[in-house]
Write a protein that binds this DNA or RNA. Structure first.
Lengths: 230, 230
DNA sequence: CTCTGTGAAAATGTTCACAGCG
DNA sequence: CGCTGTGAACATTTTCACAGAG
C-alpha cells in the first residue's frame, strides 16, 4: 500500500486531511472534489488525481465520504498510530514546538527533550524532564523514538543530528538553518522559517505593477508552499 | 531585472545565500558550483542553471566570486533594503518568531506586534508595545509595514488577515493551519509546521525495506523541502 | 585543463476534457 | 443527470552532456 504515490501528492495529503477535518466540523459528511477544492484552495482536478492514487474512494455523481476519506489519508500518512518524538533544543522555538497543538493533534507525542544549557537541563516540561544534549545517544536507548525535531542553533545542529542518528533515530525534522550531512537511510526534512519570508520578499519586489500584458499566473511549487498572488 | 526567474529557482535563492554565507565565513571567496553544491546539498548543474537566470556571474575555469554572487542574490531577493514586518499573534510561536535571528539577520525588522489577549496587550517586547488585535487596520496606518507574519490560532487567522489587508499589508506569511481567503493582489505564503512532520511520517512508514529492485531515488519537490533519504 | 552556461533529453507535475458509473 | 477517474495535452523542473570561455 502507498507504493507509488508521487512526492507532490504526498505533500498535499496533510492539506486534504486538514480540509476534511474542517468540512467535518461543519457537519459536511459527503464532499465533492469542488468542495474540498474550496476548502483547501487546491485545484479540483488535482484533488481527484491525487485521491485516485490512494484508491478509488469517491462515488460518481456524489463525491467523497468525508470520514472514510480522512481515515484513508491518515492511514497513508501513518497517523493511525502514535509517534514518539524527541525534541532537541529548547530555546524559544523549541518551546513553541513542544506546545504546538498541530503536533499533538496529529498523533505526534514528544517523549524526550534535550538542551545544552545547564540551566534548562533538569527542568520539567509537560511531564518531561529536559536532559543534557551531550547525553542524547545513550539517553535515547529504550525510549523508542521514531522521529526527532531539531530546533537548536545552526552551529550545534550537525552535532545533535549525529547523536540522534547514533541513538537510532531514522527521521529528522530540521529547523536549524543549515544543510545537515546524514548517513544513507536517514530521512530528513527541512523547515527554514526565514526562507519563506525571503521568497515573499522576492515576490513583493517583483510585483506585476505594469498594466495589461503582464504575466498573470500564480506559480505552484509545493502544495503547502504555493506562491499565491490573488 | 528579475523578470523571468522560475518559481523553483526563487525558492532556492535563499538556500544559496545561506551556503555562500557559510563559505564566506570559512574564508572561501571563490567557489565552483560543486563547492556550493556540497554546502547546499543541491545538484551542481541545478545551481549553474539557477544562477544563469540571475546573470552570468561565474568565471569559466574558476567559479563564482562569493561576495559578488551573494550580493546579487540578496539584490534579487530584495534583501538590500530593510523590511518592516508586523507580527500578529504573540503566543509561543509568535514569541519565538519575534526573537528569531534568521529574520533580523536578513533585514526583516518587526515593527508592530498584535495580540487579542488583554493580558498581553500593553506589554513591551524589544521596544515594541503589543497592541490589541482588534485595532490592527487603524494601527497600521503610518507604520509603513510591508509584510505581516500571522501566528494566531487557526480560528482567528482569517479575521486577522482581513484586518491586515484593510490596513494596507500586501504580503502575508501565514503560520496558522488554515487556507486563507484573500483578495487579488495580496501575496500569501503558508508554513504549516505539522505538514512537514506528517510528510516525514509518510516516508518513515513507506521506507524501502525490501532488498534490491526497490525504487531508490530521492524525490525533490521544493529545494527547501526536498525529501531526502540518504 | 577547469568550470561555466546552455541546448536537449528526461522526468515530474498540472490541467483539461470527457467517457462512463451510480 | 452530477461527479469521479483518467488518458492526453501542456507546463515546469531536473539532469545530462558538451561547446567554448578564461
Amino acid at each position: 500500500m502507498g507504493k507509488n504515490i508521487p512526492a507532490a501528492t504526498v505533500s498535499r495529503l496533510p492539506i486534504y486531511a486538514r480540509a476534511l477535518l474542517a468540512l467535518s466540523s461543519r457537519d459536511i459528511f459527503v464532499a465533492s472534489s469542488e468542495m474540498i477544492a474550496a476548502e483547501s484552495q487546491i485545484n479540483a482536478a488535482q484533488i481527484r488525481k491525487d485521491l485516485s492514487h490512494i484508491g478509488g474512494l469517491g462515488a460518481r455523481g456524489l463525491g467523497y465520504e468525508v470520514p472514510r476519506l480522512l481515515a484513508q489519508i491518515n492511514e497513508e500518512l501513518g497517523l493511525n498510530r502514535s509517534w514518539n518524538v524527541a525534541l532537541v533544543g529548547y530555546g524559544k522555538l523549541g518551546a513553541a514546538l513542544a506546545e504546538y497543538k498541530g503536533f499533538s493533534e496529529r498523533s505526534f507525542a514528544i517523549k524526550a527533550i534535550y538542551d545544552a544549557d545547564p540551566v534548562k537541563v533538569g527542568q520539567t516540561v509537560r511531564g518531561i524532564t529536559i536532559e543534557d544534549a551531550s547525553l542524547i545517544s545513550t539517553s535515547l536507548a529504550g525510549k523508542d523514538i521514531d522521529i526527532a525535531v531539531l530546533a537548536t542553533p545552526a552551529e550545534t545542529a550537525q552535532k545533535a543530528a549525529n547523536a540522534l542518528v547514533a541513538g537510532g533515530v531514522r527521521s529528522i525534522l530540521n529547523f536549524a538553518p543549515v544543510a545537515l550531512e546524514l548517513p544513507k537511510g536517514i530521512s530528513l526534512r527541512n523547515v527554514d522559517l526565514s526562507i519563506e519570508l525571503q521568497v515573499l520578499s522576492f515576490y513583493h519586489n517583483n510585483r506585476t505593477n505594469s498594466a495589461a500584458g503582464s504575466d498573470r499566473k500564480a506559480e505552484l511549487l509545493d502544495a503547502s508552499n504555493a506562491y499565491a498572488e490573488r
